[in-house]
Design a binder for these strands. Structure first.
Lengths: 227, 227
DNA sequence: TTGACATAGTGTTTATCAAACACTATCCTT
DNA sequence: AAGGATAGTGTTTGATAAACACTATGTCAA
């Protein structure tokens, strides 16, 4: 797309990319999606999915596109995180990265398939991240901080859930991200009192025990500030 | 710096600027600094101070520089707000703006002097903002949201205060930004219990009434998350 | 000098919200 | 029918926030 040296400027404009921290919860772990880089710099290293902003593309649209390319999902939670612009963050040329983070329910992920700029794609538990290219570790840390604090004062956790879920499953999301056990009774009282979920009327039987009532988000797609 | 057409790219890189929302509190009002634009587009309209990021300049450094140029102050609170990148936000070419906001104590502002790209500079009360160039109104709204919510859970309000201040003055800052009266006794109990300010031992006499004890920030320069 | 006035400073009670804590219910399997 | 596994349910206690009114200390003017 575009021939070489088509666009010239008196000043060297920086290149602008978006990078995305894609969270999911799988197998009782908070995980994020990494790609193994096909090209230099950091060829062969793991890093965040991302890419250059197209000439007429909004920043949000760019992040959404990258997310769809890597995971095949659409309509999930995506929020701008922070813009990283240290002149030396890319060893070659100056690249300013507008970082986003996304929350995807594990159920909605189609099979991962390495995109054009990667030789591999994988989910990594946050406990066991490899060392990352560029300043991507810093970006991940910031995304994690944001996720943890937004858990406290918003309904963001619902964006990890499938359409129907049990209260035990929802509680598990909170416990995994916060890294601590919560009291079942207090959690249920609290989450019900928020008024953001409702019973579907259905139950789910699985295993040799009492079936769980299923709930759904009252306002799916919305992330509201609570408290 | 650099001759014409020195830097060429296969893709048209966007230009990157920083814009700053500079808050202060003057005369019992929350005000912000606007400049009257000297050049097109929006020549003659009011807008936020800001400018292009230099080739080897960090984003924070760029915002800090703009702030110093416009107000002459250094060492005040400055935080990245959000990055605005709608392809049509500038009618001419594509410009991505990394927005910052800053809090300056009214006492530290030297006389305003129009910088090179402006014909005028002025403080405007938020109640009486003129219509603004570009998407600057949107940027201001976002900064205001952030300021109001950070007031709740951080010690950011202290960054509006001079070195020594009375509790009545500090309370006024909270009241002005939140737009509502607060109970004097509850406010004092609360702010003291945070443990972030201490008595200087001095008092200030002014007017025909009892003098006020003066306080100072225990950790000046820091903005801490509370609660 | 004394009384009026203006702002500084100070505690207690009540309501609301968060935390700690243990048992019963329902289904499956053997 | 008994045992095992997870679902579901209330009460008590402590902590934090909200409501509320009077005294203290200075200045100024009569």
């Amino acid at each position: 797309m575009g021939k070489l040296a088509e666009h010239c400027y008196p000043h060297p404009n920086p290149a602008v990319t978006t990078d995305i921290v894609i969270f999911t919860i799988r197998e009782e772990k908070l995980e994020l999606l990494l790609i193994k880089r096909k090209h230099d710099p950091f060829k062969g290293a793991w890093g965040l999915p991302g890419g250059f902003v197209n000439p007429d593309e909004d920043l949000d649209a760019c992040a959404k596109r990258e997310l769809a390319e890597e995971t095949g999902v659409k309509g999930v939670y995506l929020e701008q995180l922070y813009t990283f612009g240290n002149p030396k963050r890319d060893p070659r040329e100056r690249i300013i990265s507008v970082a986003y983070y996304a929350l995807v329910p594990a159920e909605r992920i189609s099979t991962l398939r390495a995109a054009s700029d990667a030789v591999d794609v994988a989910w990594y538990s946050l406990d066991k991240l490899p060392s990352l290219a560029f300043d991507h570790r810093q970006i991940v840390n910031k995304a994690l901080d944001r996720l943890i604090s937004k858990l406290e004062y918003s309904t963001i956790a619902l964006r990890f859930m499938p359409e129907k879920f049990s209260l035990t499953e929802l509680q598990a999301v909170y416990e995994i991200i916060r890294g601590e056990a919560l009291d079942k009774r207090n959690f249920r009282k609290w989450v019900i009192s928020l008024g953001r979920i409702e019973e579907t009327g259905e139950e789910r039987r699985e295993g040799n025990h009492r079936p769980a009532k299923l709930y759904r988000a009252k306002f799916p797609g919305k992330v509201e500030i609570i408290k």
